[in-house]
Write a protein that binds this DNA or RNA. Sequence first.
DNA 1: ATCTAGATTTCATAGAATGAAAGAATATTG
DNA 2: CAATATTCTTTCATTCTATGAAATCTAGAT
Lengths: 264, 264
Amino acid sequence: MSPTHSASSAEESPKAANMRSLSRAMEVFAELQRAERPQRLSDLARACGMSLPTTLRILRVLQDFGMVSQTDKSYRIGPAVLPAARSYLENDPLVVAARPILQQVASQTGLTASLYTRLGFERILVARVDGASPLRYDLPLGKRLPLTVGAAGKILLASASEEELGQVVAAAVAAGHEKDTFSPGELRERLPRPGTDFAYSEDERATGVLSVAVAVPHRSGRPSESIALTSPVETATEEGMKAGVPELRRAAGRLSELLEGSVY
Amino acid sequence: MSPTHSASSAEESPKAANMRSLSRAMEVFAELQRAERPQRLSDLARACGMSLPTTLRILRVLQDFGMVSQTDKSYRIGPAVLPAARSYLENDPLVVAARPILQQVASQTGLTASLYTRLGFERILVARVDGASPLRYDLPLGKRLPLTVGAAGKILLASASEEELGQVVAAAVAAGHEKDTFSPGELRERLPRPGTDFAYSEDERATGVLSVAVAVPHRSGRPSESIALTSPVETATEEGMKAGVPELRRAAGRLSELLEGSVY
DNA sequence: ATCTAGATTTCATAGAATGAAAGAATATTG
DNA sequence: CAATATTCTTTCATTCTATGAAATCTAGAT
């Protein structure tokens, strides 16, 4: 989580006239997530580049709402995020609609079907239905994954401008995903060719995993959701995976209707 | 989610000198969760009692951070809450420590073991390990439940002052939990007697469910976590449940150490 | 006990947040 | 399809909130 279109490195908030205090609060909140362990006030203030009193005041308000909790002098993400996540999973029209659709795709193909949403320069798994051979024992809902690697990420970049690819690469560097990072040109090479509406990947994001993905079309031309079929290498072939693409296309089409409010 | 100690009905934010814009943003965020469906700008502004421009500006910032998403003219909770929840579940020291402890309790007793945290005037399920007969098919992590009903809620109120009980009742009324609401005196009657460190309930929050709970002690004297054993009525008796209390006490003791930073 | 680093409060000031009102954009109705 | 009503968005002057420097308090270390 960071302002959806902030640029790469040093700049704090490119957004001009926009609620400084709220933006800063969100930065603190994001930093707490990034840290993955309780943080002291001074750590947060330094990491976010703001003064101690300001950071403290932000933390106090977030704590009032349960978004942050405190033990002794250290702060961490609070329990209020759980009902929020639950609300999202239960009520978001796209997620709700996706579940039965993914279910159907999974049954038809016998593969694991997943829905991702783009968030900033990453993607997030928001729904998954397992096929015959589940990929893992835990369900990694909410996991942040790179856009640059894996079929479901790359298909979201297929329609990106050169400028945007530059940002994506910069963000990946900043995020420390060093191994999965290339030059913009190199990245472009790995993306689906123009005219191709799906992406295929093998051993990319995770070794031993094959996947194909299509984007959920959006009128803007820049999709921010994708659906993927995934399988352990043992139980699938490239051809087998690609055979699932028409099914994926159909599913994506159905979902895309949800994104356009009414018909128009 | 609402300021942890706001009073009952009309008053907006009792907190005096505290980051008005941030507080208001959190109100908007809370309202979106409450609504359970996409909301229009004007609905949110009215519900939160703020002007349209202000509400719009808040939504835009939250949207930048993925906490809110928009389709056409309607706003809803955004996908950024998922990584936040995941971060909480994976990194919160209390939750992480609780998992193996609940596991042990569940094995020992064969019952479902749960950890709740108090948030405002509700409690939230933050961890659960099923025993022999699971209660449901879905795992209701993050579910908001009343404090006034069910063993795990009532044990958190056992140490509350009369004034606080009044607030709790008022909040329950405001939240619309009408059926589970009584007068403060009536509520006090239903709470564990002084000297009792556990609560027992039968058919209270959910019919056909028995449960016992103990609070996780806190130095402040006002616990905000509780752990419970729960079972369908078919497979348990009151005595059987209460036999689990010593096990619960031990578990609660272990958890409470986590709440006190260092020893002291 | 003394020192040091961090946390918290105070306070004056800058500038951000605010809502009224005007202006667009949609939706609704005749 | 025109006309009207509603909702959304932008602008802008004013107010009051958010801010950080500095002082104060607290706790941990030496």
